[in-house]
């Protein structure tokens, strides 16, 4: 198939960027969106032009490295990652806009590559259980009901891609932070640090310049890991309770 692309090109973080038109020719329907860009890049290089820079690694939808806002939707029209988006989703001759994940907390580094270090910093602020190696009791010493384990797993499935932020009209990271807070709040292992965790993760999230949540649920719609917006409810509740406890000195 043949397609018209409008791709964001930007030489470096500080350079001006703009959309540039490219023609993608003879693209097999069964190839992935990234493989389509590979083909375009081969053509560009053959012509002596610089290839389009984009992030990717596993190409199987799990590492969360790939990004791209395609026709205005983070990761494009099927609710998976861009590497798992197949060209059969597009129509012959279609015009496709390809832009980076945009948010203040995700500055563009080059073309379609952005810096998502802000997500890591939110995790570093408290997205963990402090469990020194060697100190753990037997795995079965802490029973976890299947229901809770499943809920925790559902939230823990987040791949850290940042599509939620890119899709959110407010550039909010609530789904991402909510996923981690919910995962650990459901489990007995997460209890001792429960309040501390949510307080410092939200503090970091705010500091990074993410927006607030207006409950648009665009994040949930594009999330390739199908993290449900209910984790945001959970985050709201956890944060309010922890704040209250902290205010009265009980956290």
């Amino acid at each position: 198939m043949n397609l018209h692309l409008k791709v964001w090109r930007q030489k470096s973080a500080n350079a001006e960027g703009r959309l540039v038109d490219y023609e993608a020719r003879n693209i097999p329907e069964d190839c992935s969106f990234l493989e389509m860009l590979d083909i375009v890049n081969e053509d560009l290089q053959a012509k002596g032009d610089e290839p389009i820079a984009f992030d990717h690694d596993c190409r199987e939808g799990i590492c969360g490295t790939c990004s791209l806002t395609i026709n205005g939707i983070a990761h494009g029209p099927s609710a998976t990652t861009t590497c798992q988006l197949y060209m059969r989703k597009f129509k012959e001759g279609e015009t496709i806009y390809v832009e980076p994940f945009r948010a203040r907390a995700f500055p563009v580094m080059r073309d379609l590559v952005t810096d998502r270090g802000s997500l890591d910093r939110c995790q570093q602020a408290g997205g963990y259980v402090t469990a020194a190696v060697g100190s753990a009791p037997d795995g079965n010493a802490i029973p976890v009901s299947k229901g809770k384990a499943d809920l925790a797993m559902e939230a823990a499935a987040c791949i850290g891609c940042g599509a939620c932020v890119a899709a959110c009209p407010n550039g909010s990271a609530m789904l991402f932070v909510g996923a981690k807070v919910a995962h650990l709040a459901y489990l007995p292992q997460g209890q001792p640090e429960r309040d501390r965790r949510v307080l410092s993760m939200v503090r970091q999230m705010d500091k990074e310049g993410f927006g607030n949540c207006s409950n648009y649920y665009e994040c949930e719609a594009v999330c390739p890991a199908e993290i449900p917006a209910i984790v945001i409810t959970k985050l709201n509740r956890e944060y309010a309770v922890a704040s209250l406890k902290d205010t009265i000195g009980a956290a």
Binding site: S135, P137, P143, M153, Q189, G190
Partner: peptide, 22 residues
């Protein structure tokens, strides 16, 4: 065997039986 214990302590959500065991 220690690995499983360590990972459980970190909050890795391993699959569980209804009784709560791994």
């Amino acid at each position: 065997v220690d690995i499983i214990d360590q990972c459980v302590a970190q909050g890795v959500p391993f699959a569980r039986e209804y009784g709560g065991m791994l």
